[in-house]
Computed example of a mutant assay.
Amino acid sequence: MTTLSTHVLDAVTGTPAAGVGLVLTGPGGDVLARGRTDGDGRAGLGADLGAGPHRLAFATGEWFAAAGRETFHPEVVVAFTVTADGPAHLHVPLLLSPFAYSTYRGS
């Protein structure tokens, strides 16, 4: 089984994005975990992921609205595949700004 964590940073302010809502779904679209980033912009989603396609959705529109900031992306969804012979832990960082974002498979 594979576990998952994330770290969200606000590229404009250079600070962690605390309080971003998260939803992790599995291969059948079932919700595996929900959460929010902590004060350091991090979250461990506490789910053991089986092989197959998964989606991690970040509630960016809600987060920007709470800060009184405009955004183009109301939601960022990172789709990824877990393989049976892959790593025991996956990390999905998100670098966020109002009109762009970047992500990658971290370590």
Rank of each mutant, 00 (worst) to 15 (best):
P16D: 06
G86S: 13
T3K: 04
A65P: 03
L96G: 00
V77S: 04
A18K: 07
A59G: 08
E62A: 15
F80H: 10
G61E: 02
H91F: 10
R105A: 12
R34C: 03
G44H: 11
G61D: 02
H91E: 14
E70S: 12
G46A: 15
V31E: 14
D40M: 09
P98V: 10
G39P: 07
T6W: 01
L4C: 08
T60Y: 07
P93V: 02
T37G: 05
A84M: 02
T2A: 15
A11S: 14
G106W: 06
F72T: 11
G28D: 15
G21T: 04
V8R: 00
P87D: 07
L45W: 10
S97F: 00
A33C: 08
T71W: 00
T25C: 05
V76E: 14
G35N: 09
P27L: 03
G52E: 13
R42K: 14
A79V: 15
A65E: 13
G68S: 12
A51N: 05
R36S: 13
A57W: 02
E70P: 10
G52L: 11
L9M: 15
T37K: 05
T60R: 04
T13V: 09
V78G: 01
D38K: 04
S5P: 00
E62K: 06
V82C: 10
R55P: 01
R34I: 04
T103V: 01
A47H: 02
L9V: 15
G21E: 05
F64W: 14
M1G: 15
A67H: 14
T15S: 13
D40N: 13
V76R: 12
G26T: 08
A100S: 15
P27H: 02
G21Q: 03
G14K: 06
D85N: 11
G52W: 11
V78N: 07
G86P: 04
G21L: 04
H73F: 15
P16V: 02
A47I: 07
G28S: 15
V12I: 08
L9G: 09
R42L: 10
D10T: 03
T2I: 10
E62Q: 13
P16R: 05
G19W: 05
V20P: 09
Y101R: 02
A51H: 03
E75V: 15
F72E: 06
R55K: 09
H73M: 15
H54W: 07
G26F: 05
F72V: 14
P74W: 08
T6R: 06
G35S: 11
R55H: 08
P53Q: 09
A88M: 08
L94C: 11
L4Q: 02
R36L: 12
S107K: 14
A47P: 06
V76Y: 08
G35E: 09
V8K: 00
H7N: 12
L22P: 04
Y104D: 13
G106D: 12
D38W: 03
Y104V: 13
R36M: 07
P53T: 12
H89L: 07
L32Y: 05
A43P: 03
Y101C: 06
A33K: 01
G44R: 10
P98Q: 12
P87L: 11
G39T: 09
F58V: 03
S5C: 03
F80K: 10
E75G: 07
W63E: 05
